[in-house]
Amino acid sequence: MSELRKLVIAIDGPAGAGKSTIASRLARKLGYVNLESGAMYRALALKAIENDVSFDDSASLLRLAESSRIELQPQIDGNRVLLDGQNVSRRIRERDVTEGASRVSVHPPVREWMVARQREMGVNGGVIMEGRDIGTAVFPDADLKIFLDADPTVRAERRIEQNAAKNDEAAAKALREDLLRRDQRDTTRTASPLVPAADAIVLDSSKLGIEEVLTRIEQLIAERSKA
């Protein structure tokens, strides 16, 4: 049997499809690095909030990005995210930052800067990177491209469960509306809209559990590793 190659694996898809969970678990199992592009946009959004920079000010956001140091440190339970040396792993998951990340990501100069950093991180392979334009813009030559999708209703319910909002109808409604707004922005933005790469394998996780999705992707990885 030939020695297995270390691959570049791209996992794209909308919010709530399960990308982060799948990428994190696969990375741990394979001994790969999990490059979470969304965490990088979240970190920039947080810095914009802290510096009172408008999410609509492309030039100021780019200057902010260029003066930032964003690091992803793999941990057992996912990435530890450092912004200018400070651990912001929890803060960037809060709702205001989540909303901000979607808004800062629409600016082409910001995306270009992020893509350059992300390519640097994955240059040596052995990486799983998840986001919304990994297979189309960041790593168009990735060894394996997965587009992980799910019905919007299913994705919204997953987000509600993640945020323990099942018994809070107002919070649940806000999460559903946030997800729909993000879908709209992600699919209609000028820079790298959310679409499957032409050679991506589309997996619908609406009726699949995490283990079923993992098994399918692991089979694909095994096939590509031997090629």
Rank of each mutant, 00 (worst) to 15 (best):
S2P: 15
S2K: 15
L4C: 07
V8S: 08
I11C: 04
G16Y: 02
G18H: 06
K19R: 10
S20D: 04
I22Q: 04
K29H: 13
G31M: 07
M40R: 04
M40G: 01
R42K: 10
L44N: 01
A45G: 06
N51I: 11
D52C: 11
V53M: 05
D56L: 10
S58A: 15
L64F: 02
R69S: 14
R69Y: 09
E71Q: 14
Q73M: 11
P74D: 06
R90C: 08
R91A: 12
I92H: 04
R95T: 15
R95I: 15
V97I: 13
T98S: 15
S105W: 00
V110T: 00
E112N: 13
E112H: 12
M114R: 01
V115T: 12
E120P: 05
V123W: 11
G126D: 07
I128K: 03
I128F: 04
E130H: 13
G131F: 03
G131E: 04
L144A: 09
I146L: 05
I146G: 00
D149E: 11
D149N: 13
P152K: 07
R155L: 08
R155E: 03
I160W: 02
A171C: 10
A171N: 06
K173S: 14
K173Q: 15
L180I: 14
R182I: 01
Q184M: 12
T187M: 10
A191K: 00
V195I: 15
P196V: 06
A197S: 14
A197V: 09
A198H: 13
A200T: 12
V202C: 12
V202Q: 13
V213K: 02
I217A: 02
E218W: 06
